[in-house]
Computed example of a mutant assay.
Amino acid sequence: MTSESDRQKELEHRQRIQREVDLRLQEMEAKMYAPDAALDETVKHQPENSQEPWMKKVIFGGKLFVLGVVGLVAVKIASLVAGFIVVAALGWVSYKLFFESKITNLQ
């Protein structure tokens, strides 16, 4: 069990901390409302010019060129696949018509 003197010391400690906090808050308020308080001026963020404008255009042109090449390759591959499908379909239809059909005599 805690003795009365320990409780008293704890209470005094808390009161001392509260006085320090109050004093610090008063100091902060005084600084905040002081007539000669220095205000920081805001400035717009300016990105660093690590790449010059012509370099950005070259990079953009390179990306556009690569996109065009990829598109051209995709169209070529798609046309080859479509050609194979058409040839396979024609071959299948020809097989069904000419080699697998059952000739019935109409006589």
Rank of each mutant, 00 (worst) to 15 (best):
S5V: 11
E4S: 09
V70D: 00
D22Y: 01
A78K: 07
Q26V: 08
I77S: 10
F98A: 04
S5H: 11
A30C: 08
K44T: 12
S3G: 07
R19D: 10
F65V: 04
L106P: 01
M1F: 09
R14K: 06
L25F: 02
I59C: 01
G61C: 03
G62E: 13
K63A: 09
S79A: 13
E4Y: 02
T2I: 08
G68W: 05
V43K: 12
H13D: 15
E41D: 13
P47I: 04
I59N: 02
K44V: 13
P47V: 05
V69I: 15
L97R: 13
W54T: 10
G71C: 13
K44E: 03
Q18L: 15
K57A: 03
A30P: 04
P47Y: 01
E12R: 09
Q51P: 00
E20P: 00
S5E: 08
A30V: 08
L23Q: 12
D40N: 11
K76D: 09
K96V: 14
M28R: 06
G91D: 11
V69P: 00
V93P: 00
D36W: 05
E29C: 12
R14C: 01
F65R: 03
K31E: 09
A30D: 15
T104D: 05
V75L: 08
L64I: 02
E20L: 06
E41Y: 10
A74Y: 12
G71P: 02
E29Y: 12
A34K: 07
L39G: 01
E20Y: 01
I77F: 04
K57E: 05
I77Q: 14
E10N: 14
A74M: 09
E41A: 10
I77D: 08
G83S: 09
E41I: 05
A37Q: 14
K56S: 06
L39H: 07
K44A: 08
L11Y: 15
K9D: 11
G61K: 02
A88N: 06
V81A: 10
V70Q: 02
E4P: 00
G61F: 03
L11F: 14
Q8H: 11
A82P: 04
M55H: 05
G61M: 03
I17E: 08
K63S: 09
V66Y: 02
A38S: 06
H45N: 12
A89N: 04
L23N: 13
F98Q: 12
V86A: 12
A30Y: 07
G91L: 09
T42I: 14
N49S: 13
G62D: 06
G68D: 03
M28A: 13
A78F: 14
V58R: 05
E29L: 15
V21M: 05
E20W: 02
N49D: 13
